[in-house]
Design a protein around this nucleic acid. Structure first.
Lengths: 347, 347
DNA sequence: ATTAGCACTCGCTTCAAAAGAGTGCTAACA
DNA sequence: TGTTAGCACTCTTTTGAAGCGAGTGCTAAT
């Protein structure tokens, strides 16, 4: 799919305008942008084309256009210019870097706080952690006729719990048997020794509770998956409420609740491969709760401690350009500070 | 001020109904409550009296009544019955207590999470900490003509920062001088050695920057105050959005932002004296952001580590009775678990 | 002292009309 | 052939008026 020069310009202009205003942008707005000296009618034609290509959408006839996930995607991949920090921004950030800090985890968290404060974006992150955790023990507590609370305690005494609803009625014999079984087979086994075979084995053993077992094992699996990183944190979550897209409380609540749950952050952090910067836009997210959000993730490494993850989170119309630049600066500084403790960098 | 028996009953009924429904409650509603067999007209007269006494208010003529801060206060102090846990609640909570946990801080945090999850209330807490912290150093970074960022690094490498607006224009000489002075006089001095005299000394020394200095010293003072407790945490903040009083995003945002800031939590935690349970209702709160909230606070102690604080936070119409009972259970369990590791308690 | 009755207040809902923003299409133009 | 002006059309948002309903305060009767 090749976009003409003008279409590119228009798409870029629409997206950038929408990022700023959060309002659907109409043809007239763009035509007045003097960037390209054509009339609104021409822009309309072009925008109709862009819509047909799936890059823009209309919330309803007679509204302006807003970018689709695909639109953001092409913007991010091909159109976006790198955000240029102003001199004062650079200076401010640089000064912050000159602080003397020692404890790595604390430093990263505090640095994240400062960045969140200065950029007004929400930042999530995970600290670097080792990978030989294990689950210490399992508890299962019946709540009522057809639900129970499954509690998992990890080697670091992190307690995870989930209410599990069953299709059928159960009694305490069942919960007891299941937790016994889990304890016998999985408690104390370090993560790297647990594989699918082991899980199948359990499933075979407990055949008569098959349907009951499924949600249990799912949750157990989740817990095992997340044993890796020792800690996740979030800075400035309430800043999300600044965005008009979360003026609907219901929506805001869903998102904040999702972010409240460390599990989810863990999963997000885990999804970063070693690419430079990973951008996940709207519906590209696995989690349904994030379908209106975009995330800009990157990883940093600390010698001897492995890698950690840091990312910005915001509505799909977030300022990708700025987020990417800031994130690069941030992870770059972390790398530099932790590897060498040499805060006085050039440019 | 003495309330007749019937007035007490009516006040209690109004408050309890309002706690459940969050709607102004009218005379007819109360009269149908059969608790006291009088007609709505009688109730109206009584309610008019209660309003005159300042215990109830009307959002507008022709709406029902809602409790005032004073109303809640008399309810809490004199009317409220202790919440009785149902058998299943007790069982559920008890089972959770039987988990084997070792690391104290982690345990408390996780316990808090579980309680927050089960009760659907937001919980804030601070862990027990020692009291000989100091501030490592100060940095002051100019942001623009009349504002600067003051950054404080504590002995634990916690970074605190605040944007400070000045009445007049400043230049970098000023910020430099101020931060030098702060570093010379206060950096490295442990908390217990800093007193008001020291502060006055600084103020005298820097007389020519007097107006500029005031907000700076205020913030510094705040930081010193909060050196005590090492850590604060919050569980289930997003649950606040369940309450209709926060369906206004602006209000929700203010509150969440307030809670995002660990400083504020610190200050709240610090306000608990050694009373059993402290209840702060609505406008009794110091912080403006909390004027529509109530907080139920209590402290726990860990041998050798001092005391920590845990509290529920919710709208003024929160279920005080239940919050108090739950909180007592929670802190009681913490005391028991940490002092003795004896999870199997009687009733 | 209590209650029934009634006029009155005030917020909320509903409905229709008007305004406004932006489109798509057509016809004219360079 | 690409661009533009113009206009009818669509759909949302705003506005205002009318009506409803919950609840009060007061008065007069019990």
């Amino acid at each position: 799919m090749d976009l003409g020069e003008r279409k590119k310009k228009i798409l870029g202009a629409v997206i950038e305008h929408y990022i700023r205003t959060a309002e659907p942008v109409g043809s007239r707005t763009i035509s007045k942008l003097d960037e390209l000296g054509v009339s609104s009618a021409t822009i309309r034609n072009e925008m109709a084309d862009l819509e047909e290509m799936g890059l823009l959408t209309q919330p309803h006839t007679s509204a302006g256009r807003i970018p689709s996930t695909m639109g953001y995607r092409t913007y991010v991949d091909r159109l976006m210019k790198r955000y240029e920090f102003s001199v004062s921004e650079i200076n401010r950030l640089r000064s912050l870097m000159e602080l003397e800090l020692t404890e790595v985890d604390t430093m990263i968290k505090e640095l994240t706080n400062i960045y969140s404060y200065l950029t007004n974006y929400t930042i999530v992150g995970s600290s670097a952690g080792n990978s030989n955790g294990y689950i210490k023990n399992f508890h299962m507590v019946q709540i009522d006729r057809n639900s129970a609370l499954l509690i998992v305690v990890t080697d670091k005494n992190i307690v995870k719990n989930k209410k599990i609803d069953f299709d059928c009625d159960i009694d305490s014999t069942v919960t007891e048997q299941i937790s016994n079984m889990l304890n016998e087979n999985l408690a104390g086994v370090i993560k790297s020794k647990i594989n699918l075979d082991k899980i199948y084995e359990i499933q075979a053993e407990m055949d008569k509770y098959k349907t009951v077992l499924l949600p249990v094992l799912n949750f157990v699996n989740e817990c095992i998956e997340s044993l890796d990183n020792s800690e996740v944190f979030i800075s400035g979550a309430s800043k999300l409420l600044d965005f008009p897209e979360y003026s609907n409380v219901q929506k805001a609540k869903e998102l904040l609740e999702f972010l409240d749950n460390k599990e989810n952050l863990h999963r997000m952090a885990a999804s970063v491969d070693n690419a430079d910067v990973k951008i996940i836009i709207g519906s590209e997210n696995d989690a349904l709760e994030l379908k209106d959000c975009s995330i800009v993730l990157s990883s940093y490494s600390i010698k001897g401690k492995g890698t950690g993850t840091i990312g910005f989170i915001g509505p799909t119309r977030m300022n990708y350009s700025k987020a990417v630049s800031t994130l690069k600066l941030l992870t770059g500084q972390i790398d530099k500070l932790t590897s060498n403790k040499e805060p006085e960098g050039e440019k």
